[in-house]
C-alpha cells in the first residue's frame, strides 16, 4: 500500500514540485492551498498518512492547522516545510511527537531526504 501524502502550501509551484517528486516515488499525493482546505480534506478522508505543512499560510497558519488536523486525526504524521530560517518547533507540537527530523527548510536542494522521511513516517504508522 503506497503512502498517502497531503501537501499543504499556498505556493502552487512548490505543491507541484513536491507532488511530482513524491508521485514519482510511488506515493499518492493530495494537495491543499490553505489550512482550511487541508482541514476539509482530512475531515472527509481519514486515509492520509503524512501531511507536509508550510508554516506561513494565508488564513489559518501552519501551527494551528497542525493542531486542528491532529485533533481530527491523531494518527496523522506531519512534516514541517518552511521558508522561515528561524523557525523553531513550539512545545505543544513537540508534545505530539514532532521533532527536528520532521523539520525541512526551504529551499530543498534535494527532495530525496524528504521523501525518505515521508516513507519512514508512513511506514511507522502501519
Amino acid at each position: 500500500m503506497s503512502p498517502r501524502v497531503l501537501v499543504v502550501d499556498d505556493e502552487p509551484f512548490i505543491v507541484t514540485g513536491l507532488r511530482t517528486f513524491l508521485e514519482d516515488e510511488g506515493m499518492h499525493v493530495d494537495s491543499a492551498g490553505s489550512g482550511e482546505e487541508a482541514v476539509d480534506i482530512v475531515r472527509n478522508d481519514s486515509g492520509i498518512d503524512v501531511c507536509i505543512m508550510d508554516m506561513r499560510l494565508p488564513g489559518m497558519n501552519g501551527d494551528t492547522t497542525i493542531r486542528t488536523l491532529y485533533e481530527i486525526c491523531p494518527d496523522l504524521r506531519f512534516i514541517i516545510h518552511t521558508g522561515s530560517a528561524d523557525y523553531s518547533i513550539p512545545d505543544d507540537l513537540r508534545a505530539i511527537g514532532i521533532d527536528e527530523r520532521q523539520l525541512f527548510a526551504k529551499p530543498l536542494l534535494d527532495m530525496m531526504p524528504l521523501a525518505e522521511t515521508v516513507a519512514a513516517l508512513a511506514g511507522g504508522r502501519d
Binding site: 505556493e11 522561515s84 530560517a85 528561524d86 526551504k106 529551499p107 530543498l108
Partner: peptide, 24 residues
Amino acid sequence: AGMAHEINNPLSGVLQSCQNIQRR
C-alpha cells in the same frame, strides 16, 4: 531577515523543478 522567506519560496520552486526535470 525580512526577505529570506520571500526568496526561499521561489527558490524552492526552481530547485524542486530542476530536480524533477532531472529525474523525469
